[in-house]
């Protein structure tokens, strides 16, 4: 039975609130119902339904688009945890389709090929909440200003290399820290430079963090990577290729879930990191030309 008649749905509190409930958890990329089941069994808090994981998108090339609605429906039928799906940057129509499919969150994602080189989706116009990627504070606040109810630092998806993820979450934190204690004049100048309202900068600096839940994404491949993300201040982690490109997906998935909970406890981390078999093969950043970096998409 749906929400009661007089209740208000799709409010900022409900949009932002679902992300709050996902905190301390792991959101896993899955490409079919069987993988979604494995993710749920392992303790994922949500799954991201997509056609190909980022490492395959990187390998295959071509245009990466929204997934087939049938595939998303199949995954929704298979699990009881939230199901997210990706739309191309600026692709309002893909987002409308995903909203009509009743997905729980839309990821306006640089992992897919951008559809608009000028505008991101106006996310305030939608009932369904959005998560977006960022590399720095300005990008995060622009997306939040457009209506994103959750953020994720981008990292470099499909690489199994956490270095970019670390760089992006550090950058956001350092840029907030640099504005701490600054007067109104300085904050107004920063707001102008970042092309966002002063009030948004003010609340962010006051809180000492982004005003919405922020996960780390892009390159997480091991339990230790997840723990490092949490240690750097992430609210949770997205794992893409890192699970189903590992030798033992179910075991790796469960271990990453445990590590995200027990990130402070090195003894537990040692226990859950043992005997997982080979992790996904990673890519050294120097071997990826600037123009092929997914994190450069979006602005």
């Amino acid at each position: 039975m749906p929400a009661p008649k007089r209740a208000k749905t799709s409010t900022w509190a409900t949009k932002k609130g679902l992300a709050q409930m996902l905190k301390g958890g792991v959101i896993m990329d899955v490409v079919n119902p069987a993988e979604a089941k494995i993710a749920e069994e392992a303790g994922a808090v949500a799954v991201m339904a997509l056609e190909r994981v980022p490492s395959d998108i990187r390998r295959d090339g071509g245009v990466a688009r929204m997934s087939d609605p049938d595939m998303i429906k199949g995954i929704q039928a298979a699990v009881s945890i939230p199901v997210m799906a990706k739309a191309r940057i600026g692709h309002e129509s893909e987002a409308r389709i995903l909203e009509a499919l009743d997905v729980d969150y839309i990821d306006e994602s640089e992992v897919l090929t951008p559809a608009d080189d000028r505008f991101h989706i106006n996310k305030h116009d939608f009932k369904v909440p959005f998560v977006c990627g960022c590399k720095d504070l300005g990008e995060a606040l622009r997306r939040i200003n457009e209506g994103a109810a959750m953020m994720r630092t981008k990292g470099e998806a499909g690489t199994g290399n956490i270095v970019e993820a670390v760089r992006h979450i550090r950058t956001v934190a350092e840029e907030i820290a640099a504005l701490k204690g600054q007067g109104e004049k300085r904050l107004r100048a920063a707001a102008k430079e970042m092309r966002v309202p002063y009030e948004l900068v003010k609340v962010t600096v006051k809180a000492g963090r982004l005003p919405v839940v922020n996960f780390v994404a892009g390159g997480i491949a091991t339990p230790a990577d997840a723990a490092l993300s949490m240690w750097l201040g992430a609210d949770g982690v997205f794992v893409g290729s890192g699970i189903f490109k590992a030798k033992n997906p179910a075991k790796t998935a469960a271990a990453i879930v445990q590590a995200t909970t027990h990130w402070k406890n090195a003894k537990v981390l040692a226990e859950v990191s043992a005997g997982l078999g080979e992790a996904m093969k990673g890519i050294e950043m120097r071997t990826i030309p600037e123009g092929e970096r997914l994190s450069k998409r979006g602005w």
Partner: peptide, 13 residues
Amino acid sequence: RNAFGRQLESFET
């Protein structure tokens, strides 16, 4: 669980 439906049925009252 999820008695009201998916996220679009989340609400305030």
